[in-house]
Simulated scan of single mutants.
Amino acid sequence: MIKKSYIKEYFKTINSIKNLDLKKELNWGFYFSHKEKEHLINISKNSALNKYDFKEIVSCDNIYYLQIAKNEIHTEESLYKRCVELYKFSKNQGIDRFDGFDVEEVLKA
């Protein structure tokens, strides 16, 4: 599980590293890893994930990674709550691991 202290440090450094304004809507990506690709494909269709955009499933060293994303504004507390929610989701769905998050600017159409 991601600790609050990690999120706090992430917020402290995000502006200098990625030059992002955390008070604006950003694209937040969330990751899950599992040994079976088919399981992640099925999970990506779960109604609990409907509020997210499916990004991709990639493979590395026989482990598969599912990325979902959502454009939103987060505070340290709201991001921590989202991570707890997704961690619990991964446990309930038999996913090996909730792997965390990243953030980037919202791509303009």
Rank of each mutant, 00 (worst) to 15 (best):
Q93A: 08
D96L: 11
Y87H: 05
D96P: 00
D102R: 01
E72H: 01
I68S: 06
N27L: 10
L86R: 00
L49M: 14
H39T: 11
R97F: 07
E85A: 03
K37D: 05
K88C: 10
F98I: 08
M1K: 05
G29V: 04
T13W: 06
L66I: 08
K55R: 15
F32L: 04
V103D: 02
S5M: 02
L79F: 05
K70L: 14
I17S: 12
T13G: 05
I17E: 10
N42A: 08
F54A: 09
S16H: 13
K91I: 13
N19D: 13
S59L: 08
K12T: 09
L49R: 02
F98R: 00
A48H: 10
K23M: 11
L26N: 08
E77C: 04
S33G: 03
E72Y: 03
K70A: 04
H39Q: 09
A109S: 07
Q93K: 09
K108E: 07
E76Y: 05
R82G: 01
D99R: 01
F11L: 15
D102T: 12
C83P: 01
S90Q: 04
A69Y: 00
I17Y: 12
G29D: 12
E38S: 10
S78R: 09
K3P: 00
Y10P: 00
Q67H: 13
N27H: 11
K37E: 14
K70C: 06
E105H: 03
Y10K: 10
E76L: 04
Q67I: 03
S5D: 12
Y31R: 01
S16N: 13
S47A: 15
K108T: 09
C83M: 05
I57D: 13
K91P: 01
I43E: 00
I41V: 14
E9G: 12
I41H: 02
Y6Q: 09
K37T: 03
N71G: 03
R82P: 00
L107H: 10
D21K: 12
I2E: 09
D61T: 07
F30G: 00
E72Q: 09
E76H: 03
E72V: 01
R97E: 14
K8Q: 12
D96N: 15
N71C: 09
A109L: 07
